[in-house]
Design a protein around this nucleic acid. Structure first.
Lengths: 118, 118
DNA sequence: ATGCGATATAAGAACATTCTAATATTCCAT
DNA sequence: ATGGAATATTAGAATGTTCTTATATCGCAT
């Protein structure tokens, strides 16, 4: 992974990595919402929601369509947002490896490499 | 999504959301690595790598097995790490919706709800 | 027990993010 | 044109993260 890509991806993940923003994205999974809708659901001020929406907008995770004074926000990369939220919802067991197991894995990898060289 | 879960998940994503840490995780996808291995690959100091490994360890994303003076680090939730890195590697098109489309979606959702009520 | 290689920890400065309070903009109805 | 509802912007304080420098610990060989 080159460094530029690492920075780019870290920036994208930073946009996800805030409780309020995760809750906004989760809410938008259910459909389009305007800021007032979110105010009713989230325990934070209107100003703060607006600020988080700006972060999400800059990350190209959400966008809006104007409807009079309302702004109808929606997920602009729904598969990406759903994918990440999905990973969080799934639970992955935490594994441990003993030194011996790691040695065996290394040995196996070595053999495969030798085999592929001829 | 309840607030506790949102905080917990945001913390997990924060552990991912740093360029050096993403590079470490990516490297560990290829197999067990010790700190010196990473020093050769990443453009940062040993101390800094150690610090990032501590963050990853606290997030239960990596763990190590001691081998003499070496610490062999590995992914402790490989499917999770691979899943997230995989999402980043995939590219998702950025969509836009016009107000009219949103109206149609809302209308459709309304009808479905009426239908499901009987 | 001493020294060396590998890795970790501590303290603080530098930097970035988040929140709060005040205010601004925009759109619509009157 | 004025007022009110919806949303955004600004500035700064509060807080959190990251990096740097110095130092510590651990395991091994001598």
């Amino acid at each position: 992974m080159d460094t530029d890509r690492a920075y780019e991806w870290a920036d994208l993940l930073k946009a996800f990595a805030h409780p309020t923003r995760l809750q906004i994205l989760d809410e938008l999974r259910r459909g389009t919402r305007c800021v007032t809708d979110m105010e009713e659901i989230l325990p934070v001020t209107q100003v703060n929601i607006s600020q988080h929406l700006t972060v999400l907008r800059n990350a190209k995770l959400v966008d809006f369509a104007q409807d009079g004074a309302l702004r109808c926000y929606y997920l602009s990369r729904p598969k990406l947002a759903e994918g990440i939220l999905g990973m969080l919802e799934a639970d992955f067991p935490i594994i441990r490896k003993a030194k011996e197991q790691i040695d065996r894995e290394k040995e196996r990898a070595r053999k495969e490499q030798v085999a592929s060289r001829g």
